[in-house]
């Protein structure tokens, strides 16, 4: 129990750290968002009155008259109650815009984690078992080569070949815009169809995990208890899964926790290229319009998701590794 609370405390501190970055960054940068907004307004021939400036200051929570630490406290309060500001691109509360994108990103990333980790774990176990054979060389070298292709390149090429040129997959949207969201087969299949190509791209990019699983498994297969298993006459399949893989999976969960930030980063570029309406797409729109409240909200949302994934990984390790439990109790 104490372990869980320590972790939760750490995640809370990390979240505060992200909030602090978010607060101080715009204030440290040359030129503030308000004067850049005013500049754009003046360019388009808009009226600038003291009321406009006051309204903008209220909008951004950014002011020159209030001391910095008071601004910071106010910022923290509004973050905690879910007031993340108003998007200047969509003219809606940031949290609503982000919420719309988050569901699709969670679908994409969640599906990716399920497919990719199942696939790479089993492949890793298999090639470690067959190490030194041609199947091993083929799969390991192949996965290294495929996973080291940059995400931008992989996504662009797949999109160009299969969506734009051959037309096998849709070129945008999360589902057919002619359909209404409902739990019907028609709608669900449309969602899956639109999800397929971005998902394939992500799974291909994640093939590098085969290497991690393989080397964990090889390390485990060198241990004495494996020899003991064989000496006792335990069947191969049981040695492979119950003796070797069970231990080899544990470092994979740690590496999952370490790479989850990169996975969300990868989903960003995939969503942009495949026009998939997730968080990445929202971020791209915000980027193009220099919508600072939305950009900052995006960083906070990402941090929350990564922290939650880390917490889930902690709990999984706790449940799967008896050594961890006994050491802590």
């Amino acid at each position: 129990m104490r372990y869980i609370f320590t972790r939760l405390g750490f995640y809370f501190l990390a979240f505060l750290f992200a909030v602090t970055i978010n607060f101080f960054l715009p204030r440290m940068m040359p030129g503030d968002p308000i004067s850049s907004f005013l500049g754009r307004l003046a360019q388009s021939g808009g009226q600038i009155t003291p009321e406009t400036i006051a309204a903008l200051e209220a909008l951004y929570g950014y002011s020159t008259s209030v001391p910095l630490w008071q601004q910071f406290i106010g910022y923290l309060q509004s973050i905690m109650v879910g007031e993340w500001g108003v998007s200047t691109r969509f003219f809606q509360p940031v949290i609503e815009v982000l919420g719309r994108g988050t569901q699709w990103t969670l679908l994409l990333v969640g599906g990716y984690l399920l497919i990719s980790y199942t696939l790479t774990t089993f492949l890793g176990i298999y090639v470690a078992w067959k190490r030194g054979t041609w199947a091993d060389s083929l799969i390991t070298v192949g996965s290294v080569v495929i996973s080291s292709i940059p995400a931008v390149v992989m996504a662009l090429l797949l999109y160009f070949a299969f969506a734009s040129n051959l037309g096998w997959f849709p070129t945008g949207y999360a589902y057919d815009p002619a359909l209404d969201p409902a739990y019907t087969w028609e709608f669900v299949s449309s969602v899956l169809y639109h999800l397929a190509l971005p998902m394939i791209a992500m799974v291909l990019l994640g093939m590098g995990n085969v290497m991690g699983m393989r080397s964990n498994m090889i390390n485990q297969l060198g241990e004495d208890f494996i020899v003991m298993g064989w000496a006792k006459g335990v069947r191969d399949r049981k040695v492979m899964f119950s003796y070797g893989a069970r231990n080899a999976i544990l470092p994979m969960i740690t590496s999952f926790a370490m790479s989850v930030g990169a996975i969300f980063g990868g989903s960003l570029i995939i969503e942009i290229i495949f026009n998939y309406p997730g968080l990445g797409q929202v971020m791209f729109q915000a980027m193009l319009a220099r919508d600072y409240p939305l950009i900052q909200g995006y960083l906070l949302m990402m941090t929350i998701m990564v922290l939650s994934a880390n917490f889930i990984a902690d709990m999984l390790l706790f449940a799967l590794d008896p050594r961890l439990r006994t050491a802590l109790d």
Binding site: M29, G261, F264, Y298, L299, M302, T303, V306, N310
Partner: peptide, 14 residues
């Protein structure tokens, strides 16, 4: 635990 690509995007945007 702070996702690096979003952080970079925020930095670069500002």
């Amino acid at each position: 635990v702070i996702p690096s690509l979003p952080l970079m995007l925020v930095l670069a945007a500002f």
